[in-house]
Amino acid sequence: MVDTLKKFQVIEQLFRDVLNANNFTEIRTNTVQPLNLYTSAGTLTPSMLHGTYSFLDWDGWSGERVVLRPDVTVPAAQWYLNNMEGQEAKLFYIEPVYRFIDDKNNREIWQCGTELIGISPETANEAIIKLVTELLGKLNLTTAIKVIITNKDNNLQVDNYDSLPDESIAKRLIKALGNIFDKHGFNYEFIDASQNKKFEYYTNYAFSVIANDTEILSGGRYDNLCEGLGGKKAYASGFAFNMNELIKLLSDEQ
């Protein structure tokens, strides 16, 4: 347990250091969120909504249900609308999310993630590639890794990777990740995926990094999210590490 906690702290510290060095601002969101934050944005699939902890709170007499935050991106976008709408925001968080799954010990999932909102896709994509490669590069991982990339707009899949334009985010992210994995001697493969099955807010590309059949990192673009929450349309993208899974891959020599 102590080792697990130390590894957890290593990830947390590394993440905070890297994000602070890149001028990101840490935010906190409420654990208890209104359900309508998730239904009004049309952001979670029905199966994800079923897995949320939703209930009528002590003040739920008006029928307004609340949830234990199943995802941070949506409340982070709401935070942006409340505090920085119209500005460029580089945000990060280290928080748990709550999802009902079979494994009773894994229903509280700690995430460290970033949100780039109001920032042009070109700039944000560059930042995401830089951060993902820097963070994965600095973590001493010990396993084979798969990367899944989907492109919602063009339905591009990695089995036609060669046909992707060189400048596309998907191809550049794959290349950057490939470089970092080569450098560290990881075994890796890129596989296709028809769609991300949990979130519906992705608008352009989405990516996942899979190790031991478990997702340790996922992200993408969600340019309609702010508008779905009642704000003005704003470019938005980001990614999050699943810390519960990531610690299992860290070598003991961090």
Binding site: T39, S40, G42, P46, L49, H50, G63
Partner: peptide
């Protein structure tokens, strides 16, 4: 609620 989730319905409260 399942029916409303499946339809992505918004703007409601279930009593």
């Amino acid at each position: 609620t399942d029916y409303l989730y499946a339809n992505r319905t918004t703007n409601y409260r279930v009593f």
